[in-house]
Design a protein around this nucleic acid. Structure first.
Length: 469
RNA sequence: CGAGAAGUAGCACAAUUUGGUAGUGCACUACAUUUGGGAUGUAGGGGUUGCAGGUUCAAAUCCUGUCUUCUCGACCA
């Protein structure tokens, strides 16, 4: 296996990202534009994400289902804001075999309408509520510009769709799942996220409110890393979903949806990676440890494997015929949290060398204490990675009081900017035209002092703006 | 979708200007020796030059179309 130079992260971030994706064997391109091949390491990371999230979904009462992949045009047309948002990027099926279809069908770009169509049939009484469904699937959006993990035409994701008896319950659900995402991203991916509501302009097509998780990449750009939507009863009304409540009157239920995708893998790369390649937070790494035997140490290797296994530490062994230096470099590209160098020199004193991937710091420990030392390091590393990312992010958040200040920051710095905002779309558009920055989310826990940073009129909220992927 | 660039072995490239046997390095395979930061020796394998047409005695090379990738913009979970 070849390990080649990776472009310097500070010289050309875009090229660095592509290099890491390819050289860590996460993805490959295919002959299908905009669809990526997720290779074993990339997919294993996704499986780790799925495993944890699926558990969290089930702990909060959700059930998995599988919906159709195709949406007849008439069904997509039922909710008009929704169609307007998604029709421009829908892929259409017009033939079945050699026969032209009477009604064309799009490949689902998201499944709200399919769930509604189904909910209409199965919700009759308040006793049927809430309905808490989730599906793991792929969706298709005909994106024009694509990049591995960040934006593709075929998206591997999870979408939760729920129906509730009251608006309050639905809002509670929207926020509950929003918090599940936040916990997952911060505790498992070690990615600090900024959370808040999207502006009217940026919210999901058909939603009443969209809550977003915004992560800052190493280069200061934002990546929307997950969303949770409250729909009110728009879709339910459009679809005619009704239930009999306890007071024997017909009512319309309230709806939510929420999703995260393999885009999170892109975030993982761009938040934690370095010039040597991928750096995986221990909790999401498919293998916590890579063992590199140096010379003939087969007897001790078996012993080591057993003690890791007994401690439930997942590992891989690189027993190829390469030189140690080569194996070290490759282990670094692939981001294994801990490398164990098992060589004769240390073993003579009953020691082994542990190297943590994030700091490349070496620790020499006694052979008998490996498992507990590894666990200690993994735990420390998980915390350190989060803190490091948070410190960097916080140092790249600016506050602009005046429009000139905003323009200056946009020109000379990278990162997010906090501003005062009057709430008008004109001001959002102006920022975008002048700086290429878009609204990230509202800042609801800060008081507004002073006028709108853009137009100088009365501001009624604080807002994060920033460039995005 | 607009502007620009590029596609020759797994990768990086040469041969294209001036049409004439597709080549180099790394990687790969076998064996041996090695092993604490990208090994060494010996012997080997791998190509319808992105794809489709056209011009020509002859096309990697010239012409047309098309696809894919990258960069920037527009669009966008």
């Amino acid at each position: 296996m070849e390990v080649k130079e990776i472009t310097n992260r500070d010289v050309d971030f875009a090229q660095w990202y592509t290099d890491v994706c390819k050289k860590a064997d996460l993805v490959d391109y295919s002959s299908v534009k905009g669809s990526m091949i997720i290779r074993p390491l990339g997919y294993a990371i996704w499986e780790e994400m799925q495993k944890t999230l699926d558990r969290m979904f089930k702990e909060t009462g959700h059930e998995n289902v599988q919906m159709p992949m195709f949406i007849p045009e008439s069904l997509l047309n039922v909710e008009k804001e929704h169609v307007k948002g998604f029709a421009p990027e829908a892929a259409w099926v017009t033939y079945g075999g050699s026969e032209k279809l009477e009604e064309r069908m799009c490949v689902r770009p998201t499944s709200e309408v399919l769930f509604c169509d189904h909910y209409k049939k199965i919700i009759k009484t308040y006793r049927d509520l809430p309905k808490l469904y989730n599906q793991w699937c792929t969706i298709v959006r005909w994106e024009k510009t694509t990049r591995p993990f960040l934006r593709s035409r075929e998206i591997l994701w999870q979408e939760g769709h729920t129906m509730h008896r009251t608006a309050e319950e639905a809002i509670e659900e929207t926020l509950r799942m929003f918090n599940v995402y936040k916990t997952f991203q911060e505790d498992y991916l070690a990615i600090p996220v900024i959370t808040g509501r999207k502006t009217e302009k940026e919210k999901f097509a058909g939603a009443e409110a969209t809550y977003t998780l915004e992560a800052m990449m190493y280069d200061g750009n934002a990546l929307q890393n997950g969303t949770s939507h409250y729909f009110g009863d728009h879709f339910a009304k459009a679809f005619g979903i009704k239930f009999t409540d306890a007071d024997n009157t017909l009512k319309t239920p309230y709806q939510t949806s929420w999703g995260v995708s393999t885009r999170m893998i892109g975030a993982l790369i761009m938040v934690h990676g370095d010039d040597r390649g991928l750096v995986l937070p221990p909790k999401i790494a498919p293998f916590k440890v890579i063992i590199i035997p140096i010379g003939d140490v087969s007897e001790k290797l078996e012993e080591l494997k057993l003690s890791l296994k007994n401690a439930d530490i997942t590992y891989k062994v690189d027993d190829s015929n390469k030189t140690p230096g080569f194996k070290f470099a490759e282990a670094e590209v692939k981001g294994y949290p801990i490398r164990i160098e098992l060589g004769k020199r240390d073993l003579e004193q009953d020691k082994v060398t542990l190297v943590r991937r994030d700091t490349l710091e070496k620790t020499i420990v006694s052979f008998d204490s490996i498992a507990s030392e590894v666990n200690k390091l993994l735990e420390m590393m998980q915390k350190d990675m989060f803190n490091k990312a948070k410190i960097r992010r916080d140092s790249m958040i600016y506050d602009a009081k005046t429009y000139d200040e905003l323009l200056d920051i946009a020109k000379t710095k990278q990162g997010f900017v906090k501003i005062n905002w009057c709430g008008s779309e004109e001001c959002e558009n102006k920022i975008k035209e002048d700086t290429a920055m878009k609204s990230r989310c509202l800042i609801e826990d800060e008081n507004v002092t002073g006028p709108c940073t853009v137009c100088g009129k009365k501001a009624n909220t604080r807002l994060y703006v920033g460039k995005q992927y």
